[in-house]
């Protein structure tokens, strides 16, 4: 089972991810299923009726608006970063959290590494599937790169630096 950073710890990933090529007519495997958007759209009723949690993963070209009416039925949304330079997922996360109030697990998958996850966490991601060829223990240090921040975000909406007083004699 692959390792995952979740809520700041390294844990085993207990979800089964079905890829985008999964035959939409094939029988569903057992377990917690993380399904592509096309499978969700094709078999939503069946996925919800199972007694196991279900999640949806989105490609970076799939805007989360496509799942806004699904958020009550799912426990996990994963957003794929095909390459680290494709930053759409940072805004998708904030829309999911801030605009639509999604409170389930929000996972970054794909080209996810140490140098991005401090930022991702602030946008509302709470789990990270570190790229397979990288050490998740090393990546964990990325969550601690900075001890303070300048601006509001999904996590830490009112950081102390926004509340600084006028300095005397300034």
């Amino acid at each position: 089972m692959a390792l995952l950073i979740r809520h700041g710890d390294i844990v085993a990933d207990d979800w089964v991810r079905l890829d985008a090529e999964f035959d939409t007519a094939a029988p569903l495997p057992p377990g917690k299923l993380l399904v592509p958007l096309c499978l969700w759209n094709a078999r939503r009723a069946e996925l919800v009726a199972r007694d196991q949690p279900v999640g949806i993963w989105l490609a970076s070209s799939e805007h989360p608006e496509a799942i806004v009416d699904a958020l009550e039925d799912i426990a996990l949304v994963a957003i794929d970063f095909p390459v680290f330079s494709d930053g759409r997922g940072y805004s998708y996360a904030r829309v999911l959290r801030d605009t639509w109030g999604f409170a389930g697990e929000l996972r970054a998958i794909g080209d996810v590494q140490r140098d991005q996850i401090f930022l991702m966490k602030r946008c509302g991601f709470d789990s990270f599937q570190i790229r397979a060829d990288r050490d998740p223990t090393d990546a964990l240090a990325g969550l601690e790169e900075f001890s303070l921040v300048y601006q509001s975000a999904t996590v830490d909406p009112l950081p102390p630096l926004l509340q600084r007083e006028v300095r005397r004699g300034a």
Binding site: D86, G87, Y90, R94, K121, C123, F146, Q151, A153
Partner: peptide, 14 residues
Amino acid sequence: RQWSTFHPEFNYLP
């Protein structure tokens, strides 16, 4: 400057 420095959402723009 402060708002945009390490803004978590806008570090990988188009």
